[in-house]
Design a protein around this nucleic acid. Sequence first.
DNA 1: TAGATTGTTAATCGATTAACAATC
DNA 2: TAGATTGTTAATCGATTAACAATC
Lengths: 211, 211
Amino acid sequence: MTKSRNEIPRATVTRLAFYLRELQQMHRAELANVRSQSIAEKLGLKDSQVRKDLSCLGTVGQRGVGYRVDELIQNIQHVLGTDRAWNVILVGVGNLGRALTGYKGFGEQGFRLVGAFDSDPKKIGHKVGGLVIQDLGSLASFASVQAIDLAILAVPATAAQSVLSVIEEANISGVLNFAPVAVRPSQAGRTIVQEVDLAIELQRLAFSVVR
Amino acid sequence: MTKSRNEIPRATVTRLAFYLRELQQMHRAELANVRSQSIAEKLGLKDSQVRKDLSCLGTVGQRGVGYRVDELIQNIQHVLGTDRAWNVILVGVGNLGRALTGYKGFGEQGFRLVGAFDSDPKKIGHKVGGLVIQDLGSLASFASVQAIDLAILAVPATAAQSVLSVIEEANISGVLNFAPVAVRPSQAGRTIVQEVDLAIELQRLAFSVVR
DNA sequence: TAGATTGTTAATCGATTAACAATC
DNA sequence: TAGATTGTTAATCGATTAACAATC
């Protein structure tokens, strides 16, 4: 079978999100049009790469002119699924979790932080970033009322796998895992986990510097 | 020209850092040996992928037995360059920056946070994570005395590019950029920048969930 | 030895790039 | 029209995988 029209390569998806970031900035600067070369230069890519990626959106450019910034933004958001709001909860209100509740970037891309959970009784009831910290035990009932799409997992490594089970049982479909351990969904193929490890990013940088 | 023995693909470098994380956990659990299949299962990869990656280390496995955990750890750290300590500074003590000073994972991988800088006079002189916040203006002189290897850039998007110039002038060779904007080193090829964007990670997750 | 697991090959798959016809 | 820039092709490059001989 040949590749369907709207199957988008993972590498392209990542770049589309970076294009979006630049385009939103251009939009704020009131630029109406942009060429593939301008985007490419900002991100250190080839212009042909940018055009190839953008062609996945279902053709929006004008030959001789370029792309409309606002149209591109809408198209990318539609492909990424961020043309609607996503309800997100934070699980684990430690050092990092606390910072994430104040992170502006999530809201700007349509991710609404609507709940915060922890298992430490000393934290429960206190507020963080405008949210009352709730007990992990009430996650399932909360999720069934609130329609939660995603969870940010920011608990210690030792707790990550078992907390993931709780998240899975609450029927949350995606997890962004900041815990420095690989967690695996128990039921095959239900919850999607995306790993983020800040120390690993630093290691990748270190490697680049040494070479 | 054929590929040199110690050129390691970027994709492999990233996975090696993940292997390292698992191996360190196994080491703490006092496991002496490990098979490629065990590592693969934990991370959702193929065993042949793991073996291929590990073969970049210059052969450490024993047929019929597996790999020695401690040997593997040392080899990966050597390749990544984290078999020595790295001096890191934080630039931008906002919400996220503050959390990063308390992030244990950096220290565990050999990254020492040795300085914190901000341009806000109200913050200067105060302490964060055991470090006195210094003025951005004193970054260059601090770096010349302290031998700084890397900088974590956690300033607002609007400031990122100009602060990068300050970092470059201080001869710091690598920057981990958390600012949600692409920054480009001014002098060609000197400072290496690695982008991390937490909102983009959430967008990638959203895409996976929708598909 | 028999059983297990690596190291490596070759095939396949996916991603990047240069080039240029199409066309605004 | 002339100039510019897209959209797309085909070539190249890089990464993944199955399979199995080598060997502990």
